[in-house]
């Protein structure tokens, strides 16, 4: 196997298994992939470390002791101080070296992977289908590895494998999962394609994610309009694809407020106007009627219960609730979510 193939094989393996696209880590893994071939003076590493390669080829078989689990263990122990400096680089050293000799299992002669046993590990069993150094098959393998490496560098430099897959699929559960993971740090912007179930209008636009409702549905917002979007449940927007296309770092704070017979405006005016309120408030008397356009989510639901009115809030905006409850006394228990965007863009 040529030095190039070793470098690419080890770098690809490290990229997939360590989940990184860091060029330093991948370079170290690639270089370490060359090291097992120090047992022949014809290799790049053998040329560089001539005294060692001359000694090894005089006393050992090619693809022998340096191509074994034992050698990997020695490398792992010898380089163990690196783990204190950077665990990922340590992983690249050990993984790069191991993959370097493991790749030679696919060559005609295989490797003495269980050294000091003389048994050679090969894959596949038929030597005809194993690789010869510099053959056409090796260049095809190299091309495949470069493609896989490029793909995983793209995946790892983004949001990781799972999120990349979800992005490709444009699935609602993917958007929900990403919100669950990152909703505390970022305001996520989702691009939704689908149709409005109530108005039958096509939907193709960007929305801010407000909160998740189930494994397949989210409450999203476009300006002052709120919608339930997803694939299952009581929906406003039935989504064919939901892709998270942007995110803005935020400071996320949640607080619980319980109050009894208080002037509601006194309580809510102390809160940021854009904060989301979720919970129930009982108001003495009646409130103005709430009208929500067709095809949108009503975040404030009012229910007249005789002398009091019960307000059920689902991520309702503070300023809207304040407008509705001004000069009213009431009791309630609500959760206040405040999403404060960071000054600097991501």
């Amino acid at each position: 196997m040529t030095g190039c193939t070793h470098i690419i094989f080890s770098a690809t393996g490290a990229c997939i298994l360590l989940g990184t696209a860091d060029p330093i880590v991948l370079s170290i893994a690639g270089i370490m992939g060359l090291l097992p071939d120090v047992d022949t003076s014809r290799s790049w590493s053998g040329q560089l470390l001539k005294p060692l390669s001359h000694y090894l080829e005089k006393h050992h078989t090619h693809r022998g002791c340096t191509h074994s689990l034992l050698a990997s263990i020695v490398i792992a122990i010898a380089s163990s101080p690196v783990i204190l400096l950077n665990p990922q680089i340590y992983g690249a050293i050990v993984l790069g070296y191991t993959l370097g000799w493991f790749a030679d299992c696919f060559t005609k002669t295989g490797v003495q992977g269980l050294y000091p046993s003389q048994v050679r590990l090969v894959c596949p069993g038929h030597p005809k289908y194993r690789l010869t150094t510099g053959s056409k098959a090796e260049y095809i393998l190299m091309a495949v590895l470069i493609t896989v490496l490029s793909l995983f560098i793209w995946i790892n430099s983004g949001s990781g494998f799972i999120q990349s897959l979800n992005w490709i699929l444009g699935s609602s559960f993917g958007a929900v999962e990403q919100y669950k993971q990152e909703g505390g740090q970022y305001l996520l912007i989702v691009h939704i394609k689908g149709r409005n179930v109530q108005t039958q209008q096509p939907v193709d636009g960007q929305f801010d994610i407000v909160q998740d409702l189930s494994a397949n549905s989210l409450i999203v917002r476009q300006g002052d309009s709120f919608f339930v979007a997803g694939t299952q449940g009581n929906l406003n927007i039935e989504a064919n694809s939901m892709r998270v296309v942007g995110k803005q770092p935020i400071t996320f704070k949640v607080q619980k407020l319980d109050f009894q017979d208080k002037l509601i405006s006194d309580i809510l005016s102390n809160l940021p106007m854009n904060s989301y309120l979720t919970g129930e408030i009982l108001i003495d008397g009646e409130v103005d009627s709430i009208t929500t356009p067709v095809g949108q989510l009503s975040t404030i639901q009012a229910q007249n219960q005789g002398r009091v009115t019960k307000l059920t809030l689902i991520s309702a905006i503070n300023k809207d609730v304040l407008k509705l409850t001004k000069n009213s006394f009431g009791s309630g228990s609500i959760f206040v979510r405040n999403l404060q965007p960071h000054a600097a863009p991501p």
């Binding site: 002669t109 894959c123 030597p127 194993r130």
Partner: peptide, 10 residues
């Protein structure tokens, strides 16, 4: 290719 039996197909 090697014809010996000292090999394991992994």
């Amino acid at each position: 290719g090697p014809d010996h039996h000292q090999q394991i197909d992994i």
